[in-house]
Simulated assay, not measured.
Amino acid sequence: MDGRRSDTRERIRAVAMELFTERGYEKTSLREIAERLGVTKAALYYHFRTKEDIVASLSDDLRRGIDDIVSWADATPAGPERAQEILTRYGALLHGLGRDMVRFWHENQPAFRELGFGVGLRYQFRVLADLMTAPEHAPLAVFHARQALLALSWSISMMGDLPLDDDECYGAASAIASDILRRM
Rank of each mutant, 00 (worst) to 15 (best):
S155F: 03
W154V: 06
G118C: 09
F125I: 12
G160C: 01
E107P: 09
R122H: 09
M101K: 11
A111H: 06
L97Q: 00
F143Y: 13
M159T: 10
Q124E: 13
F125H: 15
L121V: 10
L97E: 04
V142D: 14
Q147Y: 09
V127K: 02
R89A: 09
L162I: 00
F104T: 09
A151N: 14
D161L: 03
Y90D: 03
M132F: 08
D130G: 01
M158G: 02
S157I: 07
G116M: 12
P139K: 12
T133L: 00
A151G: 07
H144E: 12
L93I: 04
S155D: 09
R146P: 01
L162A: 01
W154F: 08
V102A: 12
L162E: 08
A145L: 11
P135M: 09
Q124I: 01
R126F: 14
N108M: 03
R122L: 13
R89E: 05
P135H: 08
Q147F: 15
F112G: 05
V102N: 08
F143L: 11
I156N: 07
E136M: 07
P110K: 04
H144P: 12
P135W: 15
F125A: 07
S157C: 10
P110V: 07
A151K: 15
G120Q: 08
V142E: 11
L115I: 05
P135F: 12
G116L: 14
G160N: 02
Y90F: 14
W105H: 06
A148K: 05
V102Y: 04
Y90C: 02
H106V: 03
E114I: 00
L128V: 01
A111C: 05
V102S: 05
L131W: 12
H106Y: 01
H137M: 15
A134M: 05
D100C: 14
F104L: 11
L93E: 09
W105S: 10
L93V: 13
D100Y: 09
A145E: 06
V142A: 14
Y123E: 08
M158F: 00
L115M: 03
L121Y: 01
V127G: 03
R126P: 05
Q109E: 00
Q147T: 08
L150Q: 10
D161T: 06
P135T: 04
G91Y: 14
F117C: 01
E107S: 00
